[in-house]
Amino acid sequence: MSETLRIDGLRAAVEGKEILTGVTLNIQRGEIHALMGPNGSGKSTLGFAIMGHPAYEVTGGSVHLDGVDLLELDPDERARAGVFLAFQRPMAIPGVKMADFLRHATTNVRNPERKEGEDLISMREFRKELREKMEQLRMDPEFARRYVNDGFSGGEMKRAEILQMAMLRPKFAILDETDSGLDVDAVKLASQSIADIGGSEMGILIITHHDKLLEHNRPDFTHVMLGGRIVESGGPELAAELHSQGYDRIREKYPEAAAAELAMQEEAAPVS
């Protein structure tokens, strides 16, 4: 049986304001999905809601991974169940070395039943694998000794996220604007890295504004989000169209969603 991340009618609110108004999306392992949409359409919210960010309250719908109700799980249990979110803006953890952080994370994700205080995976084994993955991603070995995201450049942060994805080997990964803030070369490298790491094992949801990241990761499906829901799905040609022509056609075609988008933006805007 192929494994599926099944998102069904998901609704989510932040501070009482509904941002997701019913998202339905199925991703099989091995598939690449692109999620596009204008700013504020709810793309990042979808990632956070799936991962269980405490500020995002799920108000309806469901998310299942192979029949397991993810919404019933704590955020770390979701990670151990096999979902991963590459942050648009990863957090710095000063004083904690990348290698130590990743060894702990890798141990937990690979042994989902591990209790606190139980042994970590062997240092030797871990170091070897980390070194290999870093070589594959063309990263300086010194990187492992630096503190997590502390003083990293934008490009370094995004590559560090991809490295973590490579070590944690999730079943499903959501990449939230892994291309944002990167120059053309860095996006190219990120795109290549995702392709190297993802392979046929992973189901990937790529949230992006641009089609550059999709160059090496040709999506099987493209989805357009507007006003908190997916209004249209298609193949890779849809991503290309949106990148070159923007969202005017989508807004015209889905006036209700466009109205919802407008309403959300007005609510979010400061009172003048």
Binding site: D76, A79, F87, M91, L102, H104, T106, N108, L168
Partner: peptide, 8 residues
């Protein structure tokens, strides 16, 4: 949350 997202 970032750490928990990585399984901690």
């Amino acid at each position: 949350f970032y750490c928990r997202n990585r399984g901690l």
